[in-house]
């Protein structure tokens, strides 16, 4: 079982590392705002489910940085593939940090409806120079 506070602390630390190392951006935790328009990805794992909501501008910028292409050249398919990869890395890194002695068992990331994460008990937003990112989680018995 994962406590919500522990999940949030791990998510805050991990988001910064992941965005900096692999997407060449900077993420700062901020108070949450609803992302009306976003690219949403859900990743299931043993013990719950995590969702990552990415503002359209950040999704394009992160994809361009990850692929080393111009923002104008990023296709919708590439944007979705990179967003799934970002969610996968975030989720795996959070779980590895929370339970370093247990294997991480993630299901394949799936695109989700933009409002998928609304109402989740665990919710953290991040500001980056390119746009906003939110991580939500539903934790079993938390």
């Amino acid at each position: 079982m994962i406590a919500a506070a522990d999940f949030l602390a791990a998510a805050r630390a991990v988001a910064r590392e992941v965005l900096e190392a692999m997407f060449f951006s900077e993420a700062e935790p901020v108070s949450c705002q609803h992302l009306e328009e976003c690219v949403a990805v859900r990743v299931g794992f043993h013990g719950g489910e995590m969702a990552v909501m990415i503002s359209p501008q950040l999704a394009v910028a992160a994809s361009a940085a990850f692929l080393a292409e111009d923002s104008d050249e990023v296709t919708t398919e590439q944007r979705e593939m990179v967003s799934r990869e970002l969610a996968n890395i975030l989720c795996g890194a959070v779980l590895s940090r929370l339970h370093p002695d247990q294997r991480v068992a993630l299901r394949a990331p799936e695109m989700a409806a933009p409002d998928f994460g609304s109402g989740a008990a665990v919710h953290q937003c991040f500001a980056t120079p390119e746009g906003r990112l939110a991580i939500t989680a539903r934790l079993d018995c938390a």
Binding site: C91, A93, Q102, V104
Partner: peptide
């Protein structure tokens, strides 16, 4: 190269002959 940074997984992959293990994110 994996999102799974846990000790158990590292040990398992090392036992299977992996000479290195790097967890995402990485530089």
């Amino acid at each position: 190269i994996s999102t799974d940074a846990t000790r158990d997984r590292r040990e398992r992959m090392t036992a299977l002959g992996a000479r290195g293990y790097i967890a995402k994110p990485f530089s």
